[in-house]
Nucleic acid binder design. Sequence first.
DNA 1: TTACCAAATGGTATGGGTACCATAGCGTTT
DNA 2: AAACGCTATGGTACCCATACCATTTGGTAA
Lengths: 333, 333
Amino acid sequence: MTTIRDVARRAGVAPITVSRVINDSGYVSEKTRQRVEEAIAELNYVPNALSQGLRFNKTNVIALVLSDVTNPFWTTVARGTEDASSEENYSVILCNTDEDVAKQDKYTDLLLRRQVDGFLLVPVSNTIDTIRFIQQQGVSLVVLDRQMPGVSVDTVRADSEGGAYELTRYLTELGHRDIAILSGPEDVSTSTQRVAGYQRALQHAHLEVDSELISFGSFYQDSGYERTMKLLALSRPPTAIFAGNNFIAIGMMKALYESGLRIPEDMSVVGFDDLPPGLLVRPFLTVADQPAYEMGFRATKLLLERIANPGKPPHQEIVLPTRLVIRQSCRAI
Amino acid sequence: MTTIRDVARRAGVAPITVSRVINDSGYVSEKTRQRVEEAIAELNYVPNALSQGLRFNKTNVIALVLSDVTNPFWTTVARGTEDASSEENYSVILCNTDEDVAKQDKYTDLLLRRQVDGFLLVPVSNTIDTIRFIQQQGVSLVVLDRQMPGVSVDTVRADSEGGAYELTRYLTELGHRDIAILSGPEDVSTSTQRVAGYQRALQHAHLEVDSELISFGSFYQDSGYERTMKLLALSRPPTAIFAGNNFIAIGMMKALYESGLRIPEDMSVVGFDDLPPGLLVRPFLTVADQPAYEMGFRATKLLLERIANPGKPPHQEIVLPTRLVIRQSCRAI
DNA sequence: TTACCAAATGGTATGGGTACCATAGCGTTT
DNA sequence: AAACGCTATGGTACCCATACCATTTGGTAA
């Protein structure tokens, strides 16, 4: 490998002078600068960011720890993160936890060793300890998507309660009285907040909350499929179903399709999270769209700001509004 | 920050002894080991991977440079990469080039500085120089998805020619004689190879190749949409269309839908790349499915092997077969 | 008892780059 | 001519962990 010393020897100067040229700091005469730059070009010298990182105590690397990039929602968040960080010459290390505490722990340790300058974390449920540990190590941290009660931490998330309220309100105004919700895991804030918004809308419409119509489960398709089948088997099935995320919505629609029920003629449906616009020929599902790209982008900008100014103003919680996108998946009753 | 010296002081030993405990190397008495481990726990010591990397000349980080994670094909590749590398305690830095040479150059430089142990690269078209530069810096490299003539380099890709042949063959056997292909950019190997497979199938069926039915363009939806519209405006439009990738297929289907043409009654269509199974309620498009996850996984394993054994056996080219998935988007003629 | 060896531990240099301080040349001010 | 300050450059120590060599202790073989 070519080092700064090789370049220095070739240019006939001291290593520190090469360093000055590279970083454009301090005094270097035009003649020397040229000689050094020639030497750099001739030797194809590439500065070693490890030793710079060691010296400066700064790596310009941040970690993005989320459940699964395969979900287009997270993909989009990841893209926002990448764009925001590359603007400031930061690199992103991507890690998938699959909602598994062990994986999250493993990655946290690995990333701390790597001296990442900051964490963007979508915490696995009930892992406040991880957050505390990162904070205690003095590494900047922004929590994404989920609210973590019990710790003071910067957070960027979407307004699950509000979005769910709007969606449900839309259904009640169409005349629906029996509305089911297929939410996510009970220990994830986004799940409970979506149920809370749903309940508030029902109350607003003076409808009773029927616990049979509320369910929690995983955020994956199978769960949407199975729970929809159960709903259809009820003595009095709902006239509308609210899917707690995009995957649940897919499972739900599959179940309806297989049961021979048409949307919206036989069942009105709405969902949280849009599916990526590129992927459907004809999007028809009415949804509360979360600004995924913006979420990634803003969380990253906030993180980089925290890294740049480690002085501790109070932690922020940025709640981004969702957007009600009305399409053709609901009918009036 | 807590360093190995702090731990050593606390445990009353020399730093090197702590190092031995951490890495489980050399002789350490049971008593000392315990004292050191206690000190580590008490101080929440986390070893600094930067200095280890500097010392060992190894970072356990690889780079994944692709065009855009937002495309589900690449998302899946990325997931394969992440899984394969985390198995061996490697981390992945993800970069999107958007097929832009300047971005690729910028990232290459940045990643070389960061002393990544290897590159997984989906090269922007006509950028052999980038590949040469990385190789010349002595960093392991595996090219993904695309064939780069003119350099000797490890490559993992899918069999575009073969997949295109199968798809086209399927259409000719259904009786189609006027088959159009909407390929990707002319300077990307996957595009030309798909056209080549298409042509071979036509020749096999003793059909003439009509250059009016062959087009190159971007891999994005708009391009698929526009070129489909042009095809429909021909005096003698095709009876079947072959979309060169998943996004082109979406654009194509949108154009057909807006033109009031039904699939497969009025137009038979096939595509390269499947859409992620999770994202469609009812997949109906007949496709040549590329093993995206496996591609990422195997390319990563190959890269890690190269990193572990820098001895240079001849470069490999691994060509993964595509899988013809027949659904309901074509009719016999 | 001496010689020798394994076990246990530590001192110092090293990896690549830079902060800090030192030095020297040269022009300007008084 | 002395004093000062700016420009230009270099020496040394340090960031953190570890390779290498050295040293000490205790035990076993001759």
